[in-house]
Nucleic acid binder design. Sequence first.
DNA 1: TCATATTAGTTTCATATGCAACTATGATCA
DNA 2: TGATCATAGTTGCATATGAAACTAATATGA
Lengths: 171, 171
Amino acid sequence: MGQDTFDMHRKLPTATPPHFDLEHFLPYQLSVVSNTVSQGIAHIYQQNHDLTVIEWRIIAVLGRYPGLTASQVVDRTVMDKVAVSRAVKRLLERGILKRITHGTDRRRRHLELTQESGRKTFEAIVPRARSYEKALLTGLTAAEVQTLLELLDRLQRAAVALEEAAGLETV
Amino acid sequence: MGQDTFDMHRKLPTATPPHFDLEHFLPYQLSVVSNTVSQGIAHIYQQNHDLTVIEWRIIAVLGRYPGLTASQVVDRTVMDKVAVSRAVKRLLERGILKRITHGTDRRRRHLELTQESGRKTFEAIVPRARSYEKALLTGLTAAEVQTLLELLDRLQRAAVALEEAAGLETV
DNA sequence: TCATATTAGTTTCATATGCAACTATGATCA
DNA sequence: TGATCATAGTTGCATATGAAACTAATATGA
């Protein structure tokens, strides 16, 4: 890379650019947008159903894929194992989930929404979540939304790849 | 709401869409990408400089705008007041920041990077942060990056607007 | 000019979080 | 078989976080 061996008079010979704008740094922007959106959407299930984000996500994923185990939920949602365990516990206590131990492998406990409370909660929140999303995307055309989703997806893959590369470095 | 008094045979008469895919829900996708990226970039300053994300952001913003007060930092970075207060304290102790009390208004304490440690840390991290960002965006064309930033910006404005609307509702 | 309001920043306290260590169950293979 | 490894999920503990209450300094207005 930089071969500035001579010219003693230049300031900061090797690297170090003069300035850096946090506001235009993608990881930062991403974090700000994500936090703002998360906070907004959290109101929907916090205020109306006394659910945390993690609890709602578990409900959402079980609404779509009933019978997943806790670890399958973790895999799908990229959430912390402990956080999921605790949230499941609370949802069981509240009667929103039920848990069925697998017949032959008793380590596995399959999770489902209960018909009464669970399904009802799911069905109450979905339209609200959808309408929040719709409001959020009002200013964008369908094509722009499509582009955004695709770019986010590519970014996610790149970030995962970088993470793996960094992980190997240390090993 | 639900007026499903007649027609006992239809399932879920009034509303309630049949399913909901968390994976294709924008707030969720955004959160996953943001977390992955944040975690990746956090390594840079965690491992090499023992800094938290908040600490690094404070350094970054003061590198660009020396002399901001703590509350100006809060405004610029959309971070928690308490978190900033604590991070500033730690950075002062470590000699990365210095604090100068305003002459006439002694409530105001302006913050700057110290020449030795502060500036040096800033200048060491900036190129690493930039190269992470570059690696992250490798798969995208310049035009796509531009589009992404613009769409994120619009999303942010929409999210803020929604937040304000929701706030007023309650009042 | 004194009571009240405002602004800046800190501390307290209760809760959230996450790593690491643990329990329980099942798979493997010597 | 039974020692060891692997997997599923939970718990303990130490730290992080954030709302609300607090201290300190300044501004305002009767």
